[in-house]
C-alpha cells in the first residue's frame, strides 16, 4: 500500500499495472513540481550569474565565473548531499523536496547563465552604440535595450534545460523525495515486480518529455522575433 492505494498482484500484469498507475502519477506530480521549481530557480539565478559575470569590475565578475565553474564541474549528487546533510549543521533545515529542487536549480543555473551570456553578447554592438549616442545610462541600456532583446532569443535554449532538469529529478530519490522513480522502486521492493513499475516510469517519462518539448517548441514559434515590447 502506498499513498492509500493498494496494488493488485492477483489478477495478472495488466491489473497490476492499472492498480499502481495512481501511485506513479502521484510520483509524476512530484517530478513535475520539482522540475518547475528547479527550472524557475535556474532561470532567475542563471540570469543573476550572467549579469555578474558580465560586470566590468573584476571583483564582481571573477567570483561569479568561479562559482559557475564550481557548480558546473561538481556532480549534482555532491551538491545535493551537501545541501541536505551539511546545511542542517548550520541551522538551515529545508524539506527534502525543497532541498532537491534547489540543488537542481543551482546546478542548472550554471548552464542557463552561459545561455543568457551568449544571448546578451549576441545583441548587436550597434544597439549599445545607439544607446550611448543617446546618452542612455549603461544600466538602463542593459535593462531596457539589451535584455529585452536577449531573453526572447534564448528562451528555446533555456527550454531544453527544462527537459534536462526533468530527467535529473530521479536523483532526488536519494534524499527520500518521493518522485516517480522512487515510487516505482518502493513498489518493486514490496511486490518483487520491478519490470512493470519501471517500464511504466520509462513510458510516463517519455510522454512527459515529449509534451515538454512540444511546449518549448510552441513557445519558440510564438515568441516575438524582434524582442519583447515594453509597455
Amino acid at each position: 500500500m502506498l499513498f492509500g492505494y493498494h496494488w493488485d498482484t492477483a489478477h495478472g500484469e495488466w491489473a497490476f499495472a492499472l492498480s499502481i498507475l495512481p501511485m506513479l502519477l502521484r510520483g509524476l506530480l512530484v517530478t513535475l513540481e520539482a522540475s518547475v521549481v528547479g527550472f524557475f530557480v535556474a532561470m532567475v539565478l542563471g540570469l543573476i550569474l550572467a549579469v555578474l559575470k558580465g560586470a566590468r569590475s573584476r571583483i564582481v565578475s571573477w567570483p561569479a565565473t568561479f562559482i559557475t565553474e564550481f557548480i558546473r564541474d561538481t556532480p549534482l549528487l555532491v551538491q545535493l548531499f551537501f545541501l541536505y546533510y551539511v546545511l542542517p549543521d548550520y541551522g538551515i533545515i529545508l524539506p527534502a523536496f525543497l532541498t532537491g529542487a534547489l540543488a537542481l536549480g543551482i546546478q542548472y543555473s550554471a548552464y542557463t547563465s552561459e545561455v543568457y551570456r551568449a544571448g546578451i553578447e549576441a545583441v548587436e554592438p550597434g544597439q549599445h552604440e545607439a544607446a550611448k549616442a543617446l546618452d542612455i545610462p549603461p544600466r538602463r541600456t542593459f535593462t531596457h535595450i539589451v535584455l529585452p532583446q536577449a531573453v526572447p532569443r534564448v528562451i528555446p535554449a533555456l527550454g531544453n534545460y527544462l527537459v534536462s532538469i526533468m530527467k535529473d529529478v530521479p536523483v532526488l530519490s536519494v534524499v527520500t523525495v518521493l518522485e516517480m522513480l522512487n515510487v516505482a522502486k518502493i513498489i518493486g521492493d514490496q511486490t518483487f515486480d520491478y519490470l512493470v513499475p519501471l517500464s511504466m516510469v520509462g513510458g510516463l517519462y517519455l510522454i512527459l518529455t515529449l509534451v515538454a518539448s512540444a511546449i518549448v517548441r510552441f513557445v519558440d514559434v510564438s515568441l516575438p522575433k524582434r524582442g519583447l515590447p515594453l509597455r
Binding site: 548587436e124 545607439a130 543617446l134 546618452d135 545610462p137 535595450i145 524582442g227 515594453l230
Partner: peptide, 21 residues
C-alpha cells in the same frame, strides 16, 4: 545600420532617451 531599438515602437524609439535622459 540605423541601429533602431527593434523591440520598441517608432514612438518609443523617439521618446525613450528624452524621457530617461
Amino acid at each position: 545600420q540605423f541601429n533602431l531599438f527593434p523591440h520598441m515602437t517608432v514612438l518609443r524609439n523617439l521618446t525613450e532617451a528624452p524621457r530617461t535622459v
